[in-house]
């Protein structure tokens, strides 16, 4: 009881801080100078219709590199941790009930659709909302549906690891090419900017997003696959 009241006091202090913050805050009337630069010069400098993509991939490409690295480290740690679980009784997999006819049929219909949707999302990242991370997540969910429809199926971890490392290396290589052929690391003006709003435009942004999408998708699939295998082992 005493502990809870102490926590309540701490929380009240936080509430006061939050209230003062909200009370002193006024909604912006115009863009901040940085954002204004992005908005006015972004379409001509980067050529991406989606300004968020321009910020994520080009102007703040280092953030994305760090983010992808964090995801990679997370997936590696999770794989390491889950491999520490010792497998005992494999006959327990027998009690898994197979998925119903309707679900397996629907998943056969839906999985290609989801893969295509994921590819659409990350190829069109510079034109419509979405991008590598969302597309990767959708591809990973397609594999989740595969595992749900058939609990005994197994993902091939070697292929997943290969896709992941190849796309990671390609991402960094394209970034390094930017130093030599264009203005700096992860500069997208290696290729021609093309016509604004076309699918093949904005320099290497579609290419970069394809690699990010494959990398994120294989990492998330890796996590899910490891989790699902530990389910079966015990």
């Amino acid at each position: 009881m005493l502990r809870n009241s102490l926590f309540l006091i701490v929380l009240a202090a936080f509430a006061v801080i939050a209230f003062t913050l909200v009370n002193a805050w006024h909604p912006a009337e115009s863009l901040s100078p940085v954002a204004e630069h992005y908005a006015t010069n972004g379409p001509t400098e980067v050529g991406a219709a989606n300004l968020v993509t321009a910020v994520v991939v080009t102007y703040r490409g280092f953030d994305t590199l760090g983010e992808v690295t964090i995801l990679f480290v997370t997936a590696a740690i999770i794989g390491f941790f889950l491999s520490l679980f010792h497998s005992e009784s494999p006959e327990q997999t027998d009690r898994l009930m197979p998925a119903s006819e309707i679900l397996s049929t629907a998943s056969k219909l839906l999985i290609p659709f989801m893969l295509v949707l994921g590819i659409y999302v990350f190829v069109n990242g510079h034109l419509t909302p979405g991008g590598g991370f969302q597309g990767g997540a959708i591809i990973a969910s397609a594999f989740v549906l595969l595992l749900l429809a058939d609990p005994l199926s197994k993902l091939n971890h070697r292929i997943i690891a290969m896709v992941e490392s190849v796309s990671g290396v390609a991402f960094v290589l394209i970034g390094l090419l930017g130093i030599f052929l264009a203005g700096g690391f992860l500069d997208n003006r290696i290729l021609d900017l093309g016509t604004f709003g076309a699918l093949l435009s904005a320099g290497v942004i579609p290419l970069l997003y394809i690699f990010i999408g494959l990398k994120v998708g294989s990492e998330l699939t890796n996590i899910i696959g490891h989790l699902q295998q530990t389910q079966k082992n015990r």
């Binding site: 949707l117 419509t128 909302p129 979405g130 959708i138 969910s141």
Partner: peptide, 12 residues
Amino acid sequence: IYLDIAIVYGLL
């Protein structure tokens, strides 16, 4: 473009 979100939303 907001319709893309509806598709992903329904899926997930």
